[in-house]
Nucleic acid binder design. Sequence first.
DNA 1: CGGGATCCCTTCGGATACTG
DNA 2: CAGTATCCGAAGGGATCCCG
Lengths: 118, 118
Amino acid sequence: METNGAEQLKRLAAARRRGCGVERTLAVLDGKWTTLIVRELLSGPKRFGEIRAALDSPSAKTITDRLRALEHQRIITRTVYPEIPPRVVYELTGDGHSLAGILYEMLIWGEEHPVSEP
Amino acid sequence: METNGAEQLKRLAAARRRGCGVERTLAVLDGKWTTLIVRELLSGPKRFGEIRAALDSPSAKTITDRLRALEHQRIITRTVYPEIPPRVVYELTGDGHSLAGILYEMLIWGEEHPVSEP
DNA sequence: CGGGATCCCTTCGGATACTG
DNA sequence: CAGTATCCGAAGGGATCCCG
């Protein structure tokens, strides 16, 4: 990401308007949990319980809300297997997978910048 | 970002733990306004009023809160010129500028994925 | 097991008024 | 101009109970 920094800045400057690409992405990846759910699913389809366990257990309601929003925006699909006990599997769509670049940049930045709070 | 997608996914999968890089980044870029303020400052130092006007005018309180948080995390610096009327300039630090890669990925993704809500 | 429903507390963010 | 202070409504998110 150091290769063409100037070009990046130029395009970012040109995108400073309402409804730009950055804002649309933020509308999808809104909030901490949403982003972490996507990261979790990047490594493959997951069941509800797996996602919940991986996320330091926020309440079921929070996860459900976020999953529904992602489904609505066609970032993930929800498949119900009518067994007993029931099994529900969430999986990224093509659009969902294409978020990997963003998540990767976030991972790299976070690793290179340890928290610095007095 | 298409060059080494497999490697990205491998590293993202390996980072699925609490306090990973992704979570640290989310702690800095928390919420819509924070990200948009950083985007705004990528094109150069800005005054309080300029930032406010560029952001579709959320309340002064919201902007002030976000600016203080970013300053605390050493993403931006705040310089006060004791003139009359006063002038306060915000500017990205080196750490702040290094967020450009993330913002750029968000811009590209958003441009390629128009909102799709029924 | 994977929710839906409900309750409730906290935080976010907008509006307004005032100050150095 | 760039805040600070205060009030307030909306939304986020946790806890609990129940159901198919």
